[in-house]
Amino acid sequence: MNKYANQERRRRAIYGYLLLTPAAVLLSLFAFYPSVATLWSSMFSRGTRRHPTEFVGAGNYNDLFSDPTFWLVVKNNLFYAGITIPLSMFIALSMALWANSKISAKGFVRTAYFTPTVLPMIAAANLWLFFYTPGLGVLDQIGALFGLPSVNWLGQPETALWAIIIVTVWKESGFFMIFYLAALQTIPTDLKEAADLEGASRWTYTRRIVLPLLMPTTLFIAVNAMINSVKLIDHLFILTKGGPSDSTKLILYYIWEMAFAFFDAPHAAAMTIMVLLVLGIIAAVQFFYMDKRTHYQ
């Protein structure tokens, strides 16, 4: 009997491993090996015909730390994250509260909020180009109605990053909205009734009851928004290409440029490792939070 059970267990283990093989091969090829290879190649110099690659340790990292462009890019990305994350979350929450309340044209409103989510970032960039073009663009024409001068939104360092940020917020808010909307619909209606009986104002009800109940959703969205602030860079290719004078260059774009325009893979690798570290920290935060959430249940 025992022998039979052992055999059965071994057979199951073999099934398990066989079922996992395709996933394991592909994950190794396109996630694990590349991560290790990136770390490895970030510690070697870029080979030229005269100077073959050699081990430089933290050399590439030091180069980056003394490169003003790198710090500008980091600063841009922090600014990009610092604005897009809270702004898109705030807009998403407002959208959800509206889309969940008794308003007219609810169907239209929901569709309008969500539509940018299904568009490619490249298409979104093309749409916004029509807004930002100096002279002919929609923004300039609206400004002209009020006698404002023409502004080259994408062409000057003071406004270009803001223009990029607006496109990102426009793209992701509707996506975040649906998570808030779903969470709002799980709030029991008797809470609202009780609050009304107590004479609580709508603001009090929202602040003291709705927002605390939305906290897990808020954290979930925050993590997604953080990842997006690293990932969403496609529109740069259309709108600014990182310019003018690097004012809209974000890290992932810089990695791409370093590797595929300047053919400097080692420095791109060093930056990739730093991004992976940041993503790892976000992951740790999320694991911590997921742990907590299971305690609630």
Binding site: L27, L29, F30, A31, F32, Y33, P34, S35, A37, T38, S41, I227, V230, K231, L252, I255, W256, A259, F260, A265, A268, A269, T272, V275, L276, L279, G280, I282, A283
Partner: peptide
């Protein structure tokens, strides 16, 4: 873990692969 190793970030090595 792969949830956080975004394919977008590993472009250089994935391209090599």
């Amino acid at each position: 873990l792969q949830l956080f190793i975004l394919p977008e970030v590993l472009i250089v090595e994935n391209y090599a692969m």
